[in-house]
Design a protein around this nucleic acid. Structure first.
Lengths: 156, 156
DNA sequence: TTTAATGCAAACATTTTGCACCCTG
DNA sequence: CAGGGTGCAAAATGTTTGCATTAAA
């Protein structure tokens, strides 16, 4: 099972912590696990706190934020912008990158693979003399269900 | 001169205001003008306030925020995410869209044109059944100058 | 003169930080 | 048992809002 303390990802986290003289604590395990084990959820800090509390494994919000920063620094987790006033988080599955399609009506988030856009970005980087690190793309629109509902509402 | 009260853009703003029963005030003119007349600056709210104050035309921060929201709603200005904790703003030159290349060393922002990425996004939208509205892309890396400086530092 | 706009300060939302106590290595 | 980690509350941001006053139309 993903996100387990025995998973490859958790082992990478432990390695990162050891390498930096930091400790593998229960709270850190819980937060990382919550992100790893909720594919497609893209939780924010508050959501992670809610989920952990619901599981009777409460972790303080400050610790959650500190752990999220740690995970992002380690490269194991990515912070994503879904057009809201706070950050969301998802596992960084070894550069298997993707963008996010965000429905402006229902808020649902779908992922799409990057491949061809990645090539275009590489080309642009070369052209402008940029040494690329990463990029992110957000696409806003209305999902199939919501645009169907819109059409029904407009043409009665 | 761009951003002048006589410009095409300002006329569009006035039209939008009239259409919505709102007033064309001096503060609104000043804020919009500041964005129109600073190409490549991508100011945030605080920066706009600073610039107006420096010109002895101070506008309250609340008014600046209210005006920015208005301009974004009207489609005349776009809010952009440059990876910081606040929004930046730029004129929306009639869908002549572009992405932003952000230097992680010096913070400089360069723009690049979207065209080929736009096509890829359209394809993805069609594939996923999304009715697209807009998209934004941020590319992070190190600009030519900064990556040259890095190389010098590493290979002395 | 009517109605919307402004400035200020207070309220909010999100994230960070200081500090006394706790736990991991 | 030493040094990092945690929770809590306070602080720091960035942005929005309520209200008395001012200014467009």
């Amino acid at each position: 099972m993903k996100g387990d303390r025995s998973s490859k990802e958790f082992a990478r986290f432990e390695a990162y912590l050891k390498e930096h003289g930091l400790k593998a604590t229960r709270s850190r395990e819980l937060v990382f696990n919550e992100i790893l084990s909720s594919p497609g959820v893209h939780p924010n800090a508050e959501e992670i706190r809610r989920r952990l509390r619901a599981k009777k494994k409460p972790v303080g919000l400050a610790t959650i934020y500190r752990t999220l920063n740690l995970l992002v620094r380690s490269g194991l987790v990515t912070a994503i912008d879904l057009g809201e006033s706070h950050s969301h988080f998802e596992p960084d599955w070894e550069r298997l990158s993707h963008g996010h399609l965000i429905c402006l009506s229902c808020g649902r988030v779908q992922e799409f693979s990057h491949a061809e856009i990645q090539e275009a970005v590489d080309r642009i980087g070369k052209e402008k003399g940029f040494l690329l690190d990463r990029f992110s793309i957000q696409v806003f629109g209305h999902c199939r269900d919501c645009s169907a509902a819109r059409r029904r509402a407009k043409t009665p």
